[in-house]
Amino acid sequence: MGQASSALMEGSTLDMTPMIDVVFQLIIFFMIAIDMSQQDLEDLQMPKSVQAADDKDPEEGRLYVNVNRKGDYIIKRQPMTIDELEANLRARVFLPRPKGLPVKDKDGLAERPILIRADRATEFKHVQKVMYKCALEGLKVWKLELGVSQDEQAKAAADAAAQAK
């Protein structure tokens, strides 16, 4: 009687090893996924904007240029000079895009957009330098997006004021 009860107890013990394995795999996955998804996004304090469009579904294959408040250009965590930035863009702007999206339009201009993310205290001339490089012959990127943070409160107030009118 005693022996049978003990065997039953042993049989009901749950082996936690596979579950812990899976959980650790998930943790590693999320840690890597965070790093992969955020490596384009430098930690910058961007200015608030009321008119900003949501950036939930960015165009596939968009390039990111970060400009910190010292005026350093950073792509994928790699600081670079303005000339290195130009070389980097030239190497990447005309690469094939996912889902068969067009690389050039009929006039030979790059269809790939570039998001410029700058700190609120960055001198605007550094952003203008990126714009200048984008307009150069052989690059000709015309779709530029300026990164901002959304001022939800002000947007809600503006919408309410517009509705009241």
Binding site: V23, L26, I27, F30, M31, A33, I34, S37, Q38, L41, M46, S49, Q51, A52, A53, D54, D55, K56, D107, L109, L115, M131, C134, A135, V141, W142, K143, L144, E145, L146, G147, V148, S149, Q150
Partner: peptide, 23 residues
């Protein structure tokens, strides 16, 4: 896991101002 799942979404809530350089 919950922390990482939540964190992955937080930083993506950004906005953009669409601008175009002259063609």
């Amino acid at each position: 896991i919950i922390f990482f799942m939540c964190n992955i979404k937080f930083k993506m809530l950004e906005g953009k101002l669409q601008t175009y350089l002259p063609k």
